[in-house]
Design a protein around this nucleic acid. Sequence first.
DNA 1: TTTGACTTGTCAAATTATGTCAAATATAAC
DNA 2: GTTATATTTGACATAATTTGACAAGTCAAA
Lengths: 94, 94
Amino acid sequence: MENRFGDKIKSLREQQHLYLRQVAAHLEIDTALLSKIEKGVRNLKKDLVPKIAEILNADKEELLTLYLADQLNELIKDEPLGKKAMNIIINPNN
Amino acid sequence: MENRFGDKIKSLREQQHLYLRQVAAHLEIDTALLSKIEKGVRNLKKDLVPKIAEILNADKEELLTLYLADQLNELIKDEPLGKKAMNIIINPNN
DNA sequence: TTTGACTTGTCAAATTATGTCAAATATAAC
DNA sequence: GTTATATTTGACATAATTTGACAAGTCAAA
């Protein structure tokens, strides 16, 4: 329950036999930072999500969705009322 | 679509004929800040949510839920994929 | 034991959040 | 009109968090 984005990009990277170093270079970020992103201890900047999708030949929308899910989850992970709050947004009436 | 929490506390405050000044004093924050919170241009610190519920004789859980809904909404308000991301969290499989 | 890939801790710089003040506006009573 | 009170707004200083980089660390394979 939580590092969906990081797990996904790690698995995509490994499937394609790419090194952190290579992907990081394309993104113009530090290898250490990308490592943390894969492990979920740091966030990738949002505007780099489409770029990493390109690098990994992945679907931009799918990655962005996972990215957003992680952000949302972070906000409510310790909140018993989190899902109720989500329902208010998804189903504004009632 | 957005200032649920602020609208709610404003309406509760007015129903009870309280001034911003009075509620702000109980919360130990500036009146100007509470005004902004009611208008949705600033956030109340999360740990003050139960306190404002007490002051306004409101249900703590209801207010916290609205508070969280605003936070969630802020995160995805410009994101077409926001609701899809929420569904991933609500319904983790599939 | 050396090399390469990855991980982790720490730090400064950048960014964002927070709270206050002063001035502006609004409304109502005089 | 003027006064008084409530609220709003913008600018600012400070506090807290995030971000990115570096150095040092682990680990596995050669």
